[in-house]
Amino acid sequence: MNPVLRTEALELHHATARGALRAVDGITLEIAKGETLGLVGESGCGKSTLARCIVGIQNPTGGTLSIEGVHPGTSRATRLERARNVQMIFQDPWGALNPRLSVERIITEPLQVAGIGTRAERRAAALAIAQKVGLSPYHLERLPHELSGGQRQRVSIARALVLNPNLLVCDEAVSALDVSVQAQVLNLLLDLQKELGLSYLFISHDLAVVRYIANRIAVMYLGRIVEIGPAEDVWIHRLHPYTQALINAIPDEAARQDDAPILEGDVPSPVNPPSGCPFRTRCPIARTECAESRPELRRVGTHEVACHFADAG
């Protein structure tokens, strides 16, 4: 069976006055049906740009991408076909919804654009999907500003699901929500996945959330994947020094960690990345070899890691 999504050496380079900005720099990954791939990394690592390439908001400058085994083209028909397969939920439920449209219009708009159903059928579809995400007919009459943050995010989810896609790209979809509401939306995403067999690409800077929801985790640094594997395995047996630093930096809710080692410095510029291993400038175990050759992803146990010395110590 084809994976829902496959990318092969996907690249998005921007030309800038100072040289090429390698936002996405050779990403190869797959997402199977019903699977959640969690994508983590610091701001500027390219995770949102990758998401936008997958959905089709931005066009990759290299590599290939296939959705349900098909390479999406650029004609209107293929773009619509892609939209029926892949939808996206954004971080900010304020900015993602048109403030002048009723919730019902917001949810039926994708159907209208795709030319699906009569007006009455579209209304019925909106009502059905709204109930599935925990909204009532009352909410369909409202404008976005009349809803709470959690309700607005449910509207975003309903709009994304109304075309019955196979893959949902969630870019920091719960990050703007309060903890109590965030838990509601995460539970909803899990329920919908079970019921509809959805696949998720779940992007978040909150590693505890990604660990909870994902089957596999991919860690990005400067446009590249540095570690990928089954979620609990990456979490517990993290091999890449960057993955280790990221997870160690999470403030523990259960205990004080006054002496935990801290990663110094900032992410280098993607316009002028370090030679060899892009992480070597902040890496606690870097050696001279790391400046000379760039480590490629290689299999270690159940996951893959891009580090010369990940399994050395």
Binding site: R211, Y212, N215, A231, E232
Partner: peptide, 10 residues
């Protein structure tokens, strides 16, 4: 209690 602990899949 609302904060995620561990992995749902596990």
């Amino acid at each position: 209690a609302a904060r995620p602990q561990g992995s749902f899949a596990a």
